[in-house]
Amino acid sequence: MIELGGVDKFLKGLEESLKLPEELIRMKLNYALPFVHEEVTSKTPVWSGKSLRNWVWSMDAPNSSAPKEALGSMPPGPTNSMPLGSEPRRPVNQAAADASFAAISTRDPFRQFWLSNNSENIEGLEYGQLPTPGRSRSPKGMVRVTVQSLMLALEGGAKSK
């Protein structure tokens, strides 16, 4: 007669091992999503604030709403001669983009996560054409350089923040 002992322990171990891929994916997402959000928004030049304001996170489908107007009415300042991050209209519009990011959840890491921007000028900013190619404040773009940085970080075994 053969007796099999510890079947409950084996089944519990098997159940836990099935959760491992989900936990690994969630760990990568908990690193990648904040990384992308911080990098893209910090590289987005601000004059009116509209392009920054329109970075919108969503789950399962990209945001397709009409562009939102910039927040804040203070003068934009001499933005083309200012370093990124110091623009007067950045804080209020950054807060709106941050609120969009805060609304997503990695509870189910198998969902699709989208970062969209429906602002009319976002392509020109991404490709370094605004205000002019010679005066672009992000000539290499925001998204393209962030994707490159993220891929390098993930290949290097980035861990959750």
Rank of each mutant, 00 (worst) to 15 (best):
V56S: 07
E155L: 14
L130V: 01
E87V: 01
N93M: 05
G13P: 04
E126N: 05
E120T: 02
P76V: 11
P34C: 11
G156S: 09
M59Y: 10
G5M: 13
K43S: 04
S42P: 00
E23A: 10
P91E: 08
P67I: 02
I2P: 15
E126D: 04
S51P: 01
V145D: 06
S149H: 13
K161A: 15
S138E: 05
A66I: 03
D60A: 10
S58C: 11
E38Y: 08
R144C: 03
M82Q: 07
K28H: 12
E69N: 15
S58P: 02
M74E: 09
A158N: 09
G49S: 09
T106C: 14
S119Q: 03
G13Q: 08
N117L: 02
S64L: 13
W114G: 08
V7T: 13
Q112K: 14
S48Y: 01
Q112V: 14
E15A: 13
M74T: 14
P34S: 12
I2F: 09
L130S: 05
D98R: 10
A103I: 07
S136M: 04
K50G: 09
L33W: 02
P21L: 10
T146E: 04
Y127V: 06
S100Q: 07
M74V: 15
G157K: 12
P109G: 11
R137H: 00
N121S: 12
E87K: 00
F10R: 15
A153K: 07
Q129E: 11
P76N: 14
P21Q: 12
R90N: 03
S149Y: 03
F10I: 11
W57Y: 08
V56L: 09
V145E: 11
R107C: 15
N118K: 05
A95K: 09
R90D: 00
S116W: 01
P88T: 09
N30G: 05
K161R: 12
G49H: 01
Q129P: 05
R107P: 10
E38H: 09
F113H: 05
